[in-house]
Design a protein around this nucleic acid. Structure first.
Lengths: 249, 249
DNA sequence: CGACTCGTTGACTCTCTTCAAGGATAGTGG
DNA sequence: CCACTATCCTTGAAGAGAGTCAACGAGTCG
């Protein structure tokens, strides 16, 4: 289990991002969209760039919550562990998403890079001090947290009451929706995470996820697309599986 | 399915609570604790009291998010439904807890009174206007939301990865912790919710909940206490069943 | 090339659900 | 005060959906 990745270069911002929020690709997706140019300048002053290799830990459950992050590039999985190793992935983060909101001064979950990751890092103390000056940022942070809460509640419904097929279908639809948000095509979906990650997110096993995807493929609802991609052939059919309608085996 | 309980008296604050936040029993538990006397006066000006009978709906999923509430007395269950009626209870609220944080202008879940309920109601528009003047209140709201998010993540771990016995034990321990917070005894627990509510919260069936409680009783970990109460005979034993259950509360 | 990881598939198992019935408690009305 | 009913809780037996265990193919990397 890797600790706060001290081995990684905390060097500086990614090239093309160095102190240039104005040119930031995901700016309008992120908390930064709440700010004017001048406010952004204040925020920029406390930001450092951060890169994390796939498989490395960004933050660790139980560790001191020293920083908050904005995902600029790559994918992150958030998860919690039971002592015996059982894992629950509580979410996946994509560019524009916010990471590190903590209750006390302790992170409540771990975060690990799935793809090569670029982050904007905000030292927590400095950011909190800045919040006093930037009420719009604080409001946006509240909105971001409320959004995560809503997603968590949807996931509770999924984990508590949906069948395996409904879970997998819900997941694909959710990925599709988030792709659209990031101005990516809704259909040839990138699936950056492993079957294990998907299973740990959906409360299933890798075998069940695999079998269920096969079912959906046989039902002509989806099709493999390249190495790690999935094409959605019938979005209506997929949605029907989730809306609690009578399932077509 | 009841709508915003128009039949109920929106008359005024409960006796002994009429415009008297200073004497409010749950003040130090609630968002109000973030405020000084003078700030509280501002807040009080927008509050109206609200009472709801058991079984009646306070807010409804998909309905316009016009108000926020503070629970003064009683118990609330929050839940989401699937079209075919499957239900997931996403949480229970006790005195001091906050209700109604919404993302858009739409409630993301329903809330129903389990016990006779007393609420402080804040019109959303007015409260938002007030937030500008009361940054400490906004901060507290953010904290409250982050707290709910942490609880939701714990619940995801429970729903996705814990066994029936672990779920029930976790639930009892959680109830016990929250009782302590409200300065109530940790052991003879009040269980205001039905088996159905517990089951819908834990992602189980009433039968499984019942059987599991019987197991715990046979193992001398718990004992029935009065009509709807449960005494925890062996907290360590219970905790051992769920070791790795994160505190959160 | 051989070792490794990852994903898929098959056969069997098991936990929890489903279906069914009985018991306890409270509220109602005669 | 006592049926009578309705609701909730408990218990039992049988069944199903997902898990476990195991094997194999495909891609990857040293």
């Amino acid at each position: 289990m890797t600790v706060l990745t001290p081995a990684l270069p905390k060097t500086g911002l990614a090239p093309g991002l160095q102190g240039r929020c104005a040119a930031c690709e995901i700016r309008e997706l992120s908390v930064c969209s709440a700010l004017s140019e001048t406010e952004l300048a204040r925020l920029r002053s406390i930001i450092t760039g951060y890169r994390v290799e796939p498989g490395r830990t960004v933050i660790e459950e139980g560790g001191p919550a020293t920083d908050l992050f904005n995902v600029v590039r790559g994918t992150v999985k958030l998860y919690k562990l039971l002592p015996d190793g059982r894992r629950q992935v509580t979410g996946f983060l994509f560019p524009g998403d916010f990471l590190g909101i903590a209750l006390n001064d302790i992170y409540a979950y771990s975060a690990e890079a799935i793809e090569p990751l670029e982050l904007c890092r905000f030292p927590r103390k400095k950011l909190e001090a800045l919040l006093v000056e930037l009420p719009r940022l604080e409001r946006r942070l509240l909105g971001e947290t409320a959004h995560e809460l809503a997603a968590a509640q949807d996931q509770m419904l999924l984990l508590g009451r949906k069948t395996a097929k409904e879970r997998v279908a819900s997941f694909l639809i959710s990925l599709s929706r988030r792709a659209i948000k990031r101005r990516r095509p809704a259909s040839p979906l990138d699936i950056p995470m492993s079957r294990t990650d998907m299973a740990d997110f959906l409360g299933l096993t890798t075998e069940t996820v695999s079998r269920t995807l096969t079912q959906l493929r046989n039902a002509k609802l989806i099709a493999p697309h390249g190495r790690k991609g999935i094409a959605i052939l019938d979005m209506n059919g997929l949605s029907a599986l989730v809306d609690g309608d009578s399932p077509a085996d």
